[in-house]
Design a protein around this nucleic acid. Structure first.
Lengths: 230, 230
DNA sequence: ATCATAAAAATGACTATTAAGTCAGTATTA
DNA sequence: TAATACTGACTTAATAGTCATTTTTATGAT
């Protein structure tokens, strides 16, 4: 339910009251350190095995301090993941097809940044963590769907609908199951993260190969060579 | 490492030794009860939150008894999953294409039982559990790959190779990434299990739709109607 | 058959450990 | 200097794993 945002609440200097105003201070700095540390620890150990003292130590504070910002471990976990999930695709512009652009190019342009981002950022580990913990925290799964999955699926569905209309797609399979476009990326994330990190899949090549299947081979975005300026 | 098979070891009545021979007893029955109970508990709570006492209670034995069969919690977890993973695809015959059969039909025939099995059996939850715990138990991920994933991927790769040769496939994408055939099923398992159990995906319809994408639409295995006798 | 009995199986109260969460006291800062 | 942030030793709860004791059972003797 409600968060404990009582901590950083400056209340903009209303008529110099007798009480010393709460310090605007570096509390946000501390909070950020705790959130960052907690994310690392949760990613490494999962919810149950993460130790609050480790979070505190890594954030450079004492254990008690963590409890000034989050009422308990669950609040910390949910709070941290809430912040992490909330950010993700904000700056990954969900591009719409430009006039005259082929559907394949539009999808490539729209999804490739997501694929590349998955390969580098902490988003992939976060996704794995959500999968692992979502039976304990169903709210996370819901949030993840709402903020990450559904927007992407909707975009793909719209693009696919256009493809069916223009004849670029010979089946409405992607309209009925936009998930089919996301699935390879998801498998790759899990593969590289937990199933076989020693032999990671080249997510970009795999995505290109998938487009080969969906659209047939084309030269400019073929799986072997692809230096689209984006 | 080695298992404690010291339990059931009758040693067929060799010259009436003074020692009472160990009882052949119902120990295997007890062991099975423990394994079954442990699987349920681990599936419900994950490794860390599973309580040995719950396992014992559900198996109808006392806590100490569990430790006669498994040295500790980790051994129990690994032992149980080892048994569960070892079984899986044994009876799911990995069919090879029959002469004259279209590649699409061959893949449909080979993969559909796996899809159907995933929808019903405990294998899907087990897969989720492995994903969740494999950073703590990398051996599990390896075993899962070796016993489940790789055989399926190999089969798909062989079928895809044939498809490229016969021209049924216009790209070798599936040869390079047989994972692409598995990915939708994997996504569906995770979706139905943790991402949105309230609105489960129809795995069979989704698989059919995927084949529509890979091979183009065909009447007998189209996504809308499909009553293959199998 | 039935009984006596020793070996093995099963039990559950107990110990030891770990970690979440508290709070009286200290340090910081506006 | 007073309000607030921070500290870390402490309390408490939970549970993994132990082991002395009890129960069960396969056998050989009657």
């Amino acid at each position: 339910m409600g968060h404990n945002n009582s901590v950083s609440d400056p209340k903009p200097t209303e008529h110099k009251p007798r009480t010393r105003r709460p310090s605007v201070a570096k509390t946000t700095q501390t909070r950020q350190a705790i959130v960052a540390a907690a994310l690392d620890v949760f990613l490494e150990r999962g919810f149950s095995d993460a130790r609050m003292e480790d979070v505190a130590a890594r954030a450079g504070v004492a254990k008690g301090t963590v409890y000034r910002y989050f009422t308990d471990k669950e609040a910390l976990f949910e709070g941290v993941l809430r912040e992490v999930i909330a950010v993700p695709l904000a700056h990954l512009t969900l591009l719409l097809p430009e006039p005259g652009e082929s559907l394949r190019d539009a999808i490539w342009r729209a999804v490739l940044p997501i694929v590349r981002d998955m390969e580098r950022s902490k988003r992939a580990p976060v996704f794995r963590l959500i999968l692992a913990e979502s039976s304990r925290f169903p709210a996370l799964a819901r949030m993840f769907r709402a903020l990450v999955f559904d927007p992407v699926a909707d975009m793909i569905q719209r693009l696919a609908q256009r493809g069916v209309e223009t004849g670029e797609l010979t089946t409405d399979a992607l309209v009925k199951f936009p998930h089919l476009m996301i699935a390879p990326n998801m498998l790759a994330v899990l593969w590289n993260g937990v199933l076989d990190p020693e032999h990671p899949l080249d997510m970009e090549a795999m995505f290109a190969a998938h487009l080969d299947i969906v659209f047939g081979i084309s030269e400019d975005t073929s799986s072997t060579k692809c230096h689209k300026p984006l």
